[in-house]
């Protein structure tokens, strides 16, 4: 692949901005409307991926590899976050036999 891919020449960068915004908003809707803690977690992954895609798009369009290195770091942080978060979810399930976030309202007071 010695030449610039077709996408970069034909698709304006604005399309990637809107696509990532839509993906991010779908993630936000998931966080706000679902009660299952695991699905909330997956929505957060979706939002992280929207940001990753936008970083990669800007990096490719502006020919700056630093953006893709950032995506790599975001993936590493997401992996660590998932490990700890799922451990917390398993612990919650072990204690209250449910992962419905509506039951976990004791922290409010």
């Amino acid at each position: 692949m010695q030449q610039l891919p077709d996408v970069i020449r034909q698709i304006p960068l604005n399309n990637y901005v809107w696509f990532s915004a839509a993906l991010f908003c779908i993630g936000i809707i998931g966080v706000l409307t679902r009660r299952n803690a695991i699905i909330i977690f997956m929505s957060i992954e979706l939002m992280l991926n929207a940001v990753n895609l936008l970083l990669a798009a800007f990096s490719s369009y502006k020919a700056d590899p630093a953006g893709q290195v950032f995506v790599f770091f975001i993936m590493a942080v997401a992996a660590a976050e998932v490990a700890v978060g799922l451990a917390i979810i398993v612990m919650i399930y072990r204690n209250i036999q449910s992962i419905d976030v509506g039951i976990l309202n004791k922290l409010k007071w």
């Binding site: 970069i8 901005v17 809107w18 369009y61």
Partner: peptide, 29 residues
Amino acid sequence: GGTLLVVFIAATRHMNLGNGSGAIGAQTG
């Protein structure tokens, strides 16, 4: 969520980021 999407689109609507520049970027990724 829908309102946020509308805000994002409204904020970036007049942004002109342009297309990719030149052949320098083929090896970026």
